[in-house]
Design a protein around this nucleic acid. Structure first.
Length: 406
RNA sequence: GCGUAGGUGGCGGAGUGGUCAAUCGCAACAGACUGUAAAUCUGUCGCCCAAUGGGCUUCGGGGGUUCAAAUCCCUCCCUACGCACCA
């Protein structure tokens, strides 16, 4: 296959700097390779246990999109084998062995979400999918021992994460040492030229670099991308556990709302990492912020841009309108989920039955705190025996809106 | 294998027979203030019950002692540290 490779200097420079933390061995080497006109192969790994992809992940895919457009070969590696081993640091969760079907379901969900960024339908330069169980499940113990001889325990222990756990007298399992070995071996099996991942993957990706050199005498480069963090506090902006992650499969409204709820300090970085706007355009926004423009308005533009990427311009306009009406003008949202209930149903029962609130105790607290409001009458509901006898639109807490019809 | 210290709610970490649904911190949730931002202040934070009260299930698993156990005993599992081992 002879694909035409673009060597657009400006584009390549941007790929090499935008959202990039470090390039190994160095930026110049990769630049040289990209300018050579040769097609290179690039891979990213994904975890098949999760069908949840968030905005933080999108950074890598936006870079891949650019490389793909230049004509390079993209490989998505599904870590079905590594996922099967499970994360030993989280002993509470059982080590799940996913069936091929479950993996396929997650994979489809992944494609639906990432398909908004990467062109999976491209026939001329198709994006390839691989599963690492293909080569990892057949590895002999001998081979694994041999792989292990490429690294020292000291190297492993230097990892921050391990060092920290030793210092804190927390368990560190031998199996955790296998991770970099197996992930590194993926690079050997795939014979790729470049791997892209977040900075948290640095060690594993570099292990692959070592192994590719040993076994293939091949220089595999590594590109680490910055994680979305609050530049002031250093806290992760996209954290599933903190509930701040914005999933790519969320509705336009929810995506818009969550973006607006994001801290101001991360706006510019999010533009850089999660949108396709040019750096010049982003620079403009930054100037406006410095000039003292209300960050909220820049954030609205960000939210609009993000929603547009995943739901289209029309939905973005609508979501923006809807957000402004609901939260700035305090109007009743134009689109509210409707739930049909029986006449006389108790409010607590209904809210719990529809998973809007996790327990009746929680409903009771919300009622006591004045967090549940009848939007049409504009009054708080505090009676725990409140019965729904006529259609009613409720606001529960800050962001749940629901209409009950009888 | 031996010894020592441990295993408590989403996390960290108190509590060592009744006053413990379990101090406190973080996270989370709600209210106020706002821009559904941040910061700040206030409150909530196992589940269930027409309920200033009552019931149920929790403190690694199982069994026991007691009117009463997170707290005592037995047993099993798990972790850290030290000793031993180190082909």
């Amino acid at each position: 296959m002879t694909n035409k490779i673009s060597v657009d200097n400006k584009e390549i420079d941007e790929i090499l700097s935008r959202s990039i933390d470090t390039i190994y061995p160095k930026k110049e080497s990769l630049k040289e390779l990209l300018l050579s006109g040769k097609q290179i192969s690039i891979y990213v790994g994904i975890d098949p246990t999760a069908d949840y992809v968030h905005l933080g992940h999108s950074t890598n895919y936006l870079i891949l999109e650019r490389l793909h457009k230049l004509g390079h070969k993209i490989i998505v590696l599904v870590g079905d084998f590594t996922a099967m081993i499970g994360d030993p640091s989280d002993k509470t969760s059982a080590r799940v062995q996913l069936s091929r079907e479950e993996i396929n379901v997650n994979l489809k969900s992944f494609k639906d979400q990432i398909g908004k960024i990467l062109d999976f339908e491209n026939k001329e330069n198709p994006i390839e999918f691989k599963f690492n169980s293909e080569w990892l499940s057949g590895l002999s113990f001998e081979k694994i021992v041999e792989l292990g001889s490429n690294f020292t325990v000291q190297q492993m222990l230097e990892r921050d994460m391990f060092e920290k756990r030793i210092k804190e007298s927390k368990p560190l399992f031998v199996s955790e040492f296998f991770y970099p070995l197996l992930q590194g071996y993926d690079s050997v099996a795939l014979k790729v030229d470049l791997e892209i991942g977040g900075t948290d993957q640095t060690f594993n990706m570099l292990a692959g670099r070592t192994l590719a050199r040993r076994y293939l005498d091949h220089e595999k480069m590594v590109m680490t991308t910055t994680l979305l963090v609050n530049p002031v506090t250093g806290e992760k902006l996209m954290s599933k556990s903190l509930g701040t992650g914005i999933g790519l499969n969320e509705s336009a409204e929810s995506m818009f709302g969550k973006t607006m709820a994001m801290t101001d300090e991360g706006v510019v970085q999010t533009f850089i990492d999660c949108t396709r706007l040019s750096l010049e355009e982003i620079e403009e926004k930054k100037k406006r912020l410095i000039a003292g423009e209300n960050p909220r308005d820049i954030k609205i533009e960000l939210a609009h841009e993000i929603v547009k990427m995943y739901h289209g311009e029309e939905a973005a306009v609508f979501a923006e309108e809807s957000w402004k009406n609901t939260f700035s003008k305090k109007e009743i949202p134009s689109e509210v989920q409707e739930i049909k209930v029986d006449v006389g149903a108790l409010i607590a029962d209904v809210l719990v039955a529809n998973n809007l609130v996790e327990s009746k105790s929680q409903v009771r607290r919300l009622l006591e705190e004045g967090a549940i409001k009848d939007l049409e009458k504009d009054e708080k509901i505090t009676d725990h025996l409140f019965q729904i006898s006529a259609p009613i639109t409720l606001k529960i807490g800050k962001k749940i809106f629901v209409k009950f019809v009888v």
